[in-house]
């Protein structure tokens, strides 16, 4: 992979060049105690000294609230206004390698047979400038799910911080090259052969063996008591799903008045009891244990079977923010250790 060097102090100039060329830049910013992705114009606006953001960058390609269509009532007549989506070319700067990998998971859902024009348009117009991880915390487990702190998968440019003042830049895709071409003077050649980034990358211990987990899951499926025990402290909110960069489940609702209205979608979670409730009152998943099982099975078994990838990138957000300290990696470890 072609390597360049970018001085940290040059990032501001890069942003300015991109903004002049009409790009929108989204980066991690403090919001109270949380770190979330917001529009930025200068590097100083971005947060520093954090391991991982609170919210994932998925709202850039899959907003928490999105219009699907509008309609107007004209007497008895209904006029449907197809929601045309226009997207400004966007750069997400400063996401982690785990987040970069999550886009492929979302894309698998939104491209499955039917192409979701909203997601696809946003993804088409988004460039990913990832920053590798030089620190991790006990909640990270990217290395257990086929990822890593310097993994380039899903990135267009991968920046690794060296020596406090410089990034190693790896040009992963043509889209990444297009960014470099916007301000080539800022990207110096990497002198003297390939720079080895491994020495600055965070150490993320492997928590469980993925192959063992995948093998254990179908076997444990019917052990209701096992899942009930794991989920005993789960409060059944949607925080894990909403923070997860690889969760794509949504609700569709209408809001209208006498003149007309909209049909929209918003984030939803299989952890909420309402998710599977039938109008008849029947609910296929009545207990939190069943809903917890669904979350784990969907991400680590069904998704893999149907769409070829695990639907988890090990970012740890679900566990960091869970009000009941559920800790997904811990539960997965326990699952992978269940005996035949």
């Amino acid at each position: 992979m072609e390597q360049r060097l970018l001085k940290r102090e040059s990032v501001g100039q890069l942003f300015a060049k991109l903004a002049d060329a009409g790009w929108r830049i989204v980066g991690p910013c403090r919001s109270g105690e949380a770190v979330v992705f917001k529009d930025v114009h200068a590097p100083q606006e971005m947060a520093a000294d954090y391991v991982q953001t609170t919210l994932s960058p998925k709202s850039v390609v899959f907003p928490r609230y999105e219009l699907l269509l509008r309609y107007r009532f004209e007497g008895k007549d209904v006029k449907i206004d197809d929601e045309q989506i226009t997207v400004v070319p966007t750069v997400i700067f400063g996401l982690r390698p785990c987040d970069a990998r999550s886009l492929a998971v979302l894309n698998a859902v939104f491209s499955w047979d039917y192409q979701d024009v909203f997601f696809k348009t946003r993804l088409e117009n988004t460039t990913i400038i990832t920053v590798s991880c030089t620190t991790s915390d006990p909640y990270c487990f990217c290395t257990s799910v086929n990822g890593g702190p310097g993994d380039p998968q899903g990135s267009d440019l991968l920046l690794t911080p060296f020596d406090a003042d410089e990034y190693l830049v790896e040009i992963v895709t043509d889209r990444g090259r297009a960014i470099v071409d916007q301000a080539p003077e800022l990207f110096a050649p990497a002198a003297g052969g390939e720079v080895n980034k491994v020495r600055v990358l965070a150490d993320v211990p492997v928590r469980f063996e993925m192959s063992r987990l995948v093998e254990c899951l179908p076997r444990v499926f019917n052990d209701e008591a096992f899942w009930a025990e794991q989920a005993m402290r789960c409060l059944g909110c949607g925080a894990c799903a909403f923070l997860c960069p690889a969760c794509a489940c949504f609700d569709i609702q209408d809001e209208a008045d006498r003149q007309g209205g909209v049909r929209y979608r918003c984030w939803d979670s299989c952890g909420l009891s309402l998710f599977t409730l039938h109008t008849s009152g029947h609910n296929p998943r009545t207990t939190q244990g069943q809903r917890w099982r669904q979350r784990v099975m969907h991400k680590f078994s069904y998704f893999k079977d149907r769409l070829g990838t695990i639907a988890c990138v090990g970012c740890g957000r679900c566990s960091r923010s869970c009000p009941a300290d559920m800790n997904l990696a811990e539960h997965l470890q326990a699952l992978a250790e269940t005996s035949a």
Binding site: S31, C237, A239, W267
Partner: peptide
Amino acid sequence: DQLSCCLRCYACRAA
């Protein structure tokens, strides 16, 4: 401003 980030995750309700 404070509520602008709210995701309607219902963690508040659940806790």
